[in-house]
Every structure is written in C-alpha cells, then in structure tokens.
C-alpha cells in the first residue's frame, strides 16, 4: 500500500458546552492518497468542518492521530503545526478570507511571507494567479473583485506553497450556481494536474465532480465510496445553454 498523504486514525473531538458534552467527531479513520479528489458530505452538524480542521492541523483531536505523509503531527507545538500548515496544507474557505485593502497578488503571496527561505515569492504568486485565470487582476483589492474572482484568488493563495493537499470547506457555498460550477471546473482542472483535493459540500451536484465521496453522520463516517466523477466543464456548458434558452424563451 502506498503511503497516504494524510490519514486520520480513530480521531474524536468533543466540546464541553456547560454541562453538555458535544461529540463532534466519534472515531473517524480516513486515508487520503496522493492525487485523490474527495467530496465530504453529510447533514449540518455532522462534523465535516471539524474533520477538515483536524486534517489541516488547525485544531487538534481529543483522541486519535493525524498523520501527514506518515508523520504523526497530533502533539506538535503551535509553531511546528504552523510550519506543517505552511508546507503541506492549502486552505480554501467558504468566506474566502482574503485580507482587505491588500492586492490579489499580496494576498496570494501571504503564505510565502512565512517562509523566509523562499526566494521567488512574487513570480510564484503570479504563476498561481495565472493558473486560476486572474493574472490580469493581480493589483485589484478584494473589494474590487466578484465573489467568484475572490474565491479564485483564495485558491491561488492555497496553491502558492505547493501543498500536499488542498482542503476546501464549502468553497461554493457563498457563490451562485454558475460561479460555483466554474470554481468546480477549476478544482477538476487542478485535480487533473495531479493535486490532491478534499472538499466539503452540501450539494450532491457539487460532490458529483469528485471521484470519492465520504458521508458523515453524527460525527462518524457513514459511507466512503469511489464514484465516477462527472465533468464540471460539461455541466457548465449545459447550464449556460439552459440559461440562454430560458432567457430567449
């Protein structure tokens, strides 16, 4: 068996809310191999975000282990975890989380700021903006960009440190259908270029573009199955045609 990029071993997470104990995760084992495109599904409150935060070393489990390329990172100090996030993880958030009053280019360069050994941050960041089709907007501030464009900048930022895995928590949640499809098209393109992607979504249509689906329920993994991925490009074309017809009708 090849080594997993990230794996979770029996991780649990519980929160103490007053007298109540909330079990957000109740023992989850997932192995993620290089080059996979995984959709994480499940009802609200089932623990998807909690799971993603564990994978991305933003939060630590109550018990169990997270391994990144075979190394147990569960009990590392804050500074070491920061270094791991910086080198292995690329986050994409539902609310984009770009720095306001900061150009797209500077936003994309942000992760490289924390990498003093990195020599060519700017040209790297420009290349990533090209990859998401926004090179000509690199001097724009977030407030001058549409939601879809902001999310592209955020994706470029997640790519700039060449992470082992892209973690996206509902990246299309704040976007309209068409823009969401465009973003999924971008994720599929990145996947075809060899990126490993884990993506949380509520919508089955979005999950359909992944090649493996994890379904959570009450903090547990309910199902984990490989599926035939649909093509986002085709869907986008169909959607646009349909919209045109409706518009014409």
């Amino acid at each position: 068996m090849t080594q997993a990029v990230i794996e979770s071993i029996a991780i649990t997470k519980s929160y103490q809310m007053g007298s109540q104990n909330v079990q957000a995760l109740a023992g989850v084992d997932v192995r993620i191999q290089a080059g996979e495109f995984i959709a994480v599904m499940g009802p609200s409150g089932s623990g998807k975000s909690t799971f993603m935060n564990m994978l991305g070393c933003l939060d630590s489990p109550s018990s169990g282990e997270i391994r990144i390329q075979g190394e147990n990172v569960t009990h590392l100090a804050a500074a070491q975890l920061a270094r791991i996030r910086n080198r292995y993880i690329g986050f994409v958030f539902q609310q984009f989380n770009l720095l306001p009053r900061t150009s797209a280019l500077d936003n994309v360069m942000l992760p490289l700021l924390y990498r003093p050994d990195h020599s060519d941050a700017e040209s790297f960041a420009i290349a990533c903006l090209q990859q998401v089709g926004l090179a000509e907007r690199m001097d724009h501030h977030p407030s001058q960009l549409s939601g879809g464009q902001q999310q592209r900048v955020a994706i470029a930022r997640a790519l700039v440190n060449q992470p082992a895995v892209l973690l996206a928590d509902e990246p299309t949640g704040a976007l309209d259908t068409e823009t969401g499809l465009e973003i999924m098209q971008l994720f599929q393109q990145l996947h075809s270029e060899g990126k490993t992607i884990v993506l949380v979504t509520h919508e089955p249509e979005i999950a359909a573009f992944a090649s493996r689906q994890l379904i959570f329920r009450d903090g547990r993994l309910q199902s984990d199955k490989a599926v035939q991925a649909a093509s986002a490009t085709e869907h986008l074309q169909q959607y646009r045609q349909q919209k045109m017809q409706e518009g014409l009708a």
């Binding site: 991305g56 500074a79 920061a82 996030r85 924390y114």
Partner: peptide, 16 residues
C-alpha cells in the same frame, strides 16, 4: 482576530 486566524492558517507561527 480573523486576520490573525488566517495568517496562522497559512503558516504564521506565534512568533510571527
């Protein structure tokens, strides 16, 4: 605080 969270998420160490 959110900006700090974001910086930490992309690799800022506490010292940074």
């Amino acid at each position: 605080t959110r900006e700090i969270g974001l910086r930490m998420a992309v690799g800022a160490e506490p010292a940074d």
